[in-house]
Design a protein around this nucleic acid. Sequence first.
DNA 1: CAAATATAATTAACAGTGTTAATATTTTAA
DNA 2: TTAAAATATTAACACTGTTAATTATATTTG
Lengths: 214, 214
Amino acid sequence: MMETTTKSKRVERKEEIRKKILDVAKDLFLKHGYESVSIRKIADKVGISPTTIYLYYQDKSDVIYALHQEGFKALAIQFAALKNVEDPFERLKAMGRNYIDFSLRNPDFYQLMFMIKDPIEFVERNCASEWEEGEEAFGAMLATVADCKEHGYFGKLDLHSIALHIWFVVHGICSLKLQGHLDHVVKSHIQEGKDAYALDDAFETLITIMKGIK
Amino acid sequence: MMETTTKSKRVERKEEIRKKILDVAKDLFLKHGYESVSIRKIADKVGISPTTIYLYYQDKSDVIYALHQEGFKALAIQFAALKNVEDPFERLKAMGRNYIDFSLRNPDFYQLMFMIKDPIEFVERNCASEWEEGEEAFGAMLATVADCKEHGYFGKLDLHSIALHIWFVVHGICSLKLQGHLDHVVKSHIQEGKDAYALDDAFETLITIMKGIK
DNA sequence: CAAATATAATTAACAGTGTTAATATTTTAA
DNA sequence: TTAAAATATTAACACTGTTAATTATATTTG
């Protein structure tokens, strides 16, 4: 017997390789985008055979889902930094800004997290509708909106309706920006010089409207 | 000389085949989704060799772009039916409803039009930033928002800011619904029974907020 | 320690994908 | 009818995810 630790060395090594595969996938993903993540390229970079990956992940979508989770962890860190903002409406504003900034700084992650079908389908198939990471993020927002309501914001509107609404706006901004649709429309229909400010304008408009709800 | 018509028979036949390719692509697309549209499958169904398609479309993304345009034409028809709604705010509401309904009835088209990178990249590369179809749709909305403003809606907010904002919300609703994110969040965080109404609730909230702007 | 067993990794192969170059066929013009 | 132009095809390249069968490597047992 050699299992003095909770994990035997074999299991340990297995987890190491599993992590290495994910790290290489993440590296490829961030450097060359979603489309460039292929089983064969990952295997090459790790130094193993393509089929070996299937001993550690059941699927390609399983690898993609693991990346998806990494993204949610990174977003959670962004949100966690806001716990000490006292004024609830300022905290809500900061959350929105952080969300948008995250999408701009990690466009590939954002697309994977909110704009691509594969990972969420993987959740539906394999995770029995738990999925802590996503619920946590939305929960944090719900709490802040509730806090705002207690301070007199948002009138008689329902808590969940407000929270969802803000998410819709912010996701709308991010997703249309990332796909180039926003720039396209702004370039065609709105005065010159506003190009770069479209995003800030959009956020300002949201804040103005939300603050004005009686 | 036989070119009594503006188009010679050769050009006519060429356009016929070009259209046939597009029709088959559309059929495959609507029946089996975006991922199932492959050059080889289209060629099989048309009854030509895969490489022949490259004599009519420069690329696969060219075919996809043609589908993308079909989608915008369909949406334009939905919007055109609203010209005779007199009250501007009611017209704006109807536009929003039509937009959402379109996304639900033609989820694949909607994804192609607003959630997938390929077609808009094709526009950027090949169309010298004109692209009438998209500008027309947004223009129709801009006009309606302007009309609303003249009737006292939306306070001092900028015309373009309001129009963009509404688009963000509505697109946020549609895209998160289509990817399954909305259902996922609603199922986890919101009371039972609201499942099916999440979309209507979202739209109602938008209307309430927009109407309340002073 | 050696043999038997369980685990891990590999090669070969299947069925796809977009796309290009070279070749063959058909249609048009002289 | 023959030369030229347009159209279509076959063969091939370099990829993709994935599975079955096989080999190599550890681990456990006799």
